[in-house]
Amino acid sequence: MSDDLTTPQAQNEAELAFEGALRPKSLGEFVGQSKVRGQLQLLLTAARIQERTADHILLAGPPGLGKTTLAMIVATESDRPLRMSSGPAIQHAGDLAAVLSSLVPGEVLFIDEIHRMARSAEEMLYLAMEDFRIDIMVGKGAGATSIPLDLAPFTLVGATTRSGLLPNPLRDRFGFTAHLEFYSDDELEKVLDRAAGMLELDIDREALAEIAGRSRGTPRIANRLLRRVRDYALVHTGRAHLAAVRAALELYDVDELGLDRLDRAVMQTVLTRFDGGPVGLSTLAVSVGEEAETIESVVEPFLVRIGLISRTPRGRVATARAWRHFGLEPSRPTGGAQQALFTDDL
């Protein structure tokens, strides 16, 4: 069989290898989140000195900030094996029992989107995290019996984008909760510089800054945009200078604030169809043809964070900055004819 690196299979394998290589292998390599890194370093070092498993860790924050990477680093720096799962995959207590009972001593169990676990599994996890044992029910009705099963000591690393959905008894059993913050442009430039080196991409410093400024404070988005710039340079210019970066991002509908097609559709709807708002969530979702959950969890947080819309008791309202960014003039200082409408579905 040919080992030609130009074959599609070889290229796909190279892309997967690149994705894995992008992830830092230690806290020292990890860019950004300096406070969280310091806290984790202390926690892991103390556990190593005492020769015990580290406390359970909850990583909370928006998608793309490095929660999975940090979980891998916890396992690496603890010199422990890592088991990975996700909340949606654990829909019964039996699913969780099968995972917990197969853990080896000291193993790190990572559960992504832990807030989406089934309630029965969450309740089983309470006892497992605290006493390293679970109770398995055998039989039904009056003849049902509970069989205790001891577990090997383990460290649970949970990741969530919606920490408010975690029940208090589960949240309180984590020994340390890390709240990940969005990255600054300078931090994103460091992330991009490292990735560009791994891609062997010739890119200007101002071009890196341009990508960082459009990456919404999120390393995952920054790396994705860098790869699209790499593709554009490969096809058109041969080098990723500033003009090439701007042309590539314009082609992929990413503007200077980092707004994409859906972001702009939402803003244009609020500004033009509803005259700046207020407008309720479900009405807005129907107007742009998207699910309300997508608008609320994916689009709206960024628009609120950069000050293009605000949430009021009456609905979503465009700010003065939004009118300026889209080059429009408000017909009135606040919501108009629709102000009394569309406010019952916030």
Rank of each mutant, 00 (worst) to 15 (best):
A128E: 09
L234D: 12
P313N: 05
L249T: 09
L201Q: 07
R133L: 12
V99H: 03
G307E: 08
R173F: 13
R246F: 04
V279P: 01
S297H: 13
G197D: 06
F18S: 07
L328D: 02
A322S: 14
A209T: 12
L166V: 09
P301Y: 10
M1N: 04
D95V: 06
D255M: 10
I211K: 08
N223F: 03
S297K: 09
R216L: 13
A340Y: 10
M72W: 01
P24L: 13
A207C: 09
D275K: 11
D186C: 01
T160R: 04
E290C: 05
T155F: 10
E189Y: 01
S184P: 00
G258C: 02
H92I: 01
V157R: 06
E113Y: 10
V99D: 01
Y252T: 14
G143T: 09
A318S: 12
G289I: 08
Q91Y: 03
A159T: 06
I211W: 11
R216F: 09
S26L: 05
D186Q: 14
A178N: 03
P278H: 04
R224F: 13
T294M: 12
M198I: 04
A322C: 15
T160Y: 06
T283S: 14
E187P: 02
V299D: 00
F110S: 02
L251T: 14
L22K: 08
Q39Y: 07
D112H: 09
L180N: 07
K25G: 15
M72H: 15
M117P: 01
L82M: 10
T53N: 14
F182G: 04
G64V: 10
D255V: 05
Q268V: 10
S85G: 06
L5P: 08
G139V: 10
Q50P: 00
A340N: 07
R205Y: 10
H325V: 15
I134T: 07
Q39K: 08
M117Y: 09
R205K: 15
D150A: 15
R37L: 15
D275W: 05
Y252K: 04
G61N: 07
S146D: 00
L5G: 00
L40C: 12
L42P: 00
P219N: 12
Y183S: 02
H115Q: 11
I49W: 08
T145A: 13
A196M: 04
Q33V: 08
M84K: 14
D204P: 00
T269F: 07
T145M: 14
P278Q: 10
A233G: 15
T283D: 12
E107P: 00
A60S: 15
A178L: 11
L188I: 06
A320H: 06
L257G: 01
A17Q: 11
R116W: 04
L127H: 07
L151M: 07
L199P: 01
R48Y: 02
L284K: 09
E15M: 14
D4Q: 07
L262P: 00
F174C: 11
E256V: 13
D255A: 12
I49P: 00
D253F: 14
